[in-house]
Design a protein around this nucleic acid. Sequence first.
DNA 1: ACAGCCATGTAACTTGTTACATGATTTT
DNA 2: AAAATCATGTAACAAGTTACATGGCTGT
Lengths: 201, 201
Amino acid sequence: MSVRLGLLAILNQGPCYGYQLRREFDRRTGSAWPMNIGQVYTTLDRLVRDRYASRMESDGDGQVTYAITDQGRSEVDTWLSSPVVREGASRDELVMKLAIAVTLPGVDIARVIQAQRTATLQLLQSLTRVKNSTTDPTSADELAWLLTIDAMIFAAEGEVRWLDHSEARLVRAVAEGGVEPLPLSGSKVRRGRPVKAAANE
Amino acid sequence: MSVRLGLLAILNQGPCYGYQLRREFDRRTGSAWPMNIGQVYTTLDRLVRDRYASRMESDGDGQVTYAITDQGRSEVDTWLSSPVVREGASRDELVMKLAIAVTLPGVDIARVIQAQRTATLQLLQSLTRVKNSTTDPTSADELAWLLTIDAMIFAAEGEVRWLDHSEARLVRAVAEGGVEPLPLSGSKVRRGRPVKAAANE
DNA sequence: ACAGCCATGTAACTTGTTACATGATTTT
DNA sequence: AAAATCATGTAACAAGTTACATGGCTGT
């Protein structure tokens, strides 16, 4: 929903044609999320379909202009005035990966964590380099770009912290015994057999 | 790619039928990502299509068992041994939202940030409550669940920190002047008609 | 009898995304 | 003249997701 709404929010500034809309999007995000031009058109089609925008075949020269509708405007207002709500556990791939990995026998979780940490630290370094080589923002788009870099840095830092924390927790869990990887509960035990509860002993 | 690979990784433990696979997934993730049973079957179909799994209509009683293939096994190995790589700027909705919002005239960014912070802090509180009411893990699935909660907490904390940081940066940018929201660049400047800049008044 | 879980699936739809086709205009 | 950019689109696909249909079996 974010690309869609991002484009709509820009369209809210005034009518645009597709190509221009991409230019605006790229400019405003400092090309942090390079946008394929095709996606602009598919998204515009869908916005029109859903009555958030309308298509005005204005000129005779084939230039197609899109304008936001009232419905679209209220959608943008809502978007901007209500927080992004993270449903349940965000389906973050790394989290899911580690969550499942710890339940799997024969997986060296310490190594998984180590590999991730290395990668993330490297990313963090290159991000920091980028940030340090950036001058103070003189326009809104430069500011937006900086905020994006910041966000990535914060996320990466958080990820590393979480990895460290998880590793510690793992060490502790192993030390205290108890925690063993899960076998498949009653693989094929079914049909008649009760089996219930699964679990570990 | 994470649901897909998560299921495949469980299938790597041994053949399963669909319903059982969901049970395993839910158990191992502490139901952090409740999985619709339909999705298990669609995903299994796609895994079979892509040769990561094979279907074995074993029993006569309609029970359909799926098994991982060699290709699937190597896919899981790769997944577990290589880090999750965050491409460019992750298309995080909040980040994109703020990035675009700061370039928009007539948007009270401070309020956007404030609303988000409130929501995130609330989430953080409820997460902390959940965490504190959780006992030490005695099985791998409990551990997985805890790691997931931790991840959410770290992410939420990072988000709040980033919001604070962004707010400060905004204040500074405004104080130093310079940074103004962007109007649409040359809406329709080409092609004869000038059409002006849209915008807000 | 009825509720509820076990079990399998299908059809449809969403957003995101890319590869490709097409042509006009502008710049080099 | 060739290369780049402007400009519009389409077809196709991926992954995620849900709503629904169907039926057997189990416990109350």
